[in-house]
Design a protein around this nucleic acid. Structure first.
Lengths: 344, 344
DNA sequence: AGCTGTGATGAATCAACGT
DNA sequence: AACGTTGATTCATCACAGC
């Protein structure tokens, strides 16, 4: 980075080491081993060491940004708070934080925490007075004419897109091109210069080339450099107007049963009945159903009472309203309708 | 907070202010006055003052948590990075960060940035060795039997739930009860003590009372205190049996395998099989399993035969009953049921 | 060609208890 | 405090084999 002159870069995308500090030997319920990130480049002795490292590269990054330049960084709770604080301390000016909601995250295999289903990005201008590029209408058009939100839904980088070496992943943390696509489309113009100081397998370069942006990549590992060069060489630049639109980030809202209780549509203690009132169960505050001898989800309890292998609790269970039985699926549709009307 | 004794609180929920107005007599919790800031140092001064304020209350919060206590904080990109860094510096141990995805966020009217459509929560234990309450099965059941993720979708607090004063909203950032409902259901037990040091209009207290949790609220503004008191007084607590978490298999009474032999549910010499009948072993009178070349516990022999580091023998091994394979875990449940009926 | 079942895998701070 | 034993625990997606 020291070779790059002051004020010469339009945008920086940085995916720095996350400082994960993992234990070893995590196994799945089927006894297979989880291939965690234990590379040497992710080892830092302390928060102080990690902070010093990040302050150094973030400070240098700011030097070489143009006055209206901006930076994106990505991380998880292990490091994103360090990054965000340092960015603020260095007098960058945060525009937004963005959450990448993963459609297919790895589960928490031990049932000890919530499933870690998102990563966080920070978009910051070089300073408070900067006017960074923001293609508001491009993003709005890509989002079915709705203003682009700060939560972005994408799958992990898997399948053909994931670079492999002898059948195994080449890089532990390759980012999806769709993520970079939205970032570069939204916050750079064609011909801009994009810098990625943690280039890895070159996702930033690949997307920049395809979208007609110039790029500089910095990487330490020779194996990654070679793979990135080969990957980018195969990219055919596209005319900006030919770029395929991104899939809509909106998905059909999945409403779990517990949500009806959280929203107050069903209060704890309410009795649910099957259509013929042959079976009954009580709603608990955590969204489980209780019958004498068993407690569980609407599906589990429905199956249990009928002695069936499975059951769709949404259609099986009913709530009494004005003397008549109403399927709880109707309440779910109420929630969906509320969400839709509020969003519009 | 200084009046609350050490190690007396199970959970803290904190929604701290971030739009601190400096220079109008702001004092730190230790009563020292925050220095006025001049223009040149304004930005740095703001962050430094905010950091000092948060370090003070987060430090005090940690003092009064029980050893296995935990804290939730909520914020936006203006303050969440400061909060997260301080939480890590104070040697809390982050469990997850959670994003509250808003179904109906306020638009960005000027079109200069992305729509701010989420807020961030941090869930942290008092320390690395803490074992905070986590009702994994309650959350999983409420989520239609899928592990609860770190992205939570809720609407803003609006409509009847939003406290008003002469038609205008009483508090600028009243949180939805549904959010607190999920937090308290997932990370406290009935009877726990919950502290909210920025009580506002008392959402934490209202949900805590409804769910059978005790609470302490701290608030400076008299108008909020009055509104919160009135609000909470109108709350009717749910029945006790409706607010208990799903039973956890980890808390069930431990039944040693030998107990099945002692109780005559398995006689010595019985052959056990894995689900696919690929492995087999014989039950010995002392409750060990014997295979050619090895003898040991159901877990040890299961791991040994599969060449795995470990194995849950209760689910791995099956006994033949009427030509079909029955998991020995079923026999353990029989013993547990007998114990429960004798105890009652 | 199309369907079905099996196996692999992804930025993960991933256990509790008795001796 | 350290160590060994018991035993609880996974979702979405893709590749590939088999039919």
């Amino acid at each position: 980075m020291k070779m790059i002159p002051d004020g010469s870069v339009d945008l920086i995308f940085a995916d720095p080491p996350y400082n994960l500090q993992l234990g070893d030997g995590l196994t799945r319920p089927d006894q297979s081993t989880v291939d965690g990130v234990n590379d040497a480049w992710d080892q830092f002795g302390s928060f102080a060491a990690y902070d010093a490292f990040c302050r150094a590269w973030l400070s240098e990054a700011r030097r070489l940004l143009k006055p209206d330049g901006a930076i994106w960084v990505i991380g998880t709770y292990h490091n994103i708070f360090r990054l965000g604080s340092i960015i603020q301390d260095l007098e960058y000016w945060i525009q937004n934080d963005v959450v990448w909601v993963k459609t297919n995250p790895m589960p928490n295999f031990r049932g000890t925490r919530l499933q870690n289903a998102h990563e966080t990005l920070i978009w910051a201008a070089r300073g408070k007075e900067s006017r960074p590029t923001f293609n508001y209408h491009s993003l709005k058009t890509a989002n079915d004419d709705l203003q682009m939100r700060s939560d972005w839904t994408f799958p992990l980088c898997t399948g053909q897109e994931r670079l492999k070496n002898g059948g195994k992943k080449l890089h532990p943390t390759q980012k999806p091109e769709a993520l970079l696509h939205r970032i570069l489309l939204g916050t750079t113009n064609p011909g801009d210069l994009v810098l990625d100081p943690f280039f890895g397998t070159g996702t930033t370069g690949a997307v920049a080339k395809r979208l007609g942006r110039h790029y500089i990549g910095i990487e330490r590992e020779a194996a990654y450099i070679d793979a990135a060069a080969e990957r980018i060489a195969a990219i055919e630049p596209e005319a900006a107007e030919m770029v395929t639109p991104m899939p809509s980030p909106r998905r059909e809202a999945r409403i779990p049963f517990g949500r009806l209780v959280e929203d107050g549509l069903l209060s704890p203690g309410t009795v649910l009945y099957c259509a013929k009132r042959r079976y009954r169960a009580k709603v608990k505050a955590d969204g489980s159903l209780a019958t004498p001898g068993a407690t569980g989800s609407i599906h589990k309890i429905g199956a249990h009472l009928q002695n069936a292998p499975s059951c769709n609790g949404w259609t099986f269970w009913h709530v009494e309203r004005q003397g008549r039985l109403l399927p709880i699926d109707t309440l779910r549709q109420t929630v969906r309708a509320q969400m839709a009307s509020m969003a519009s």
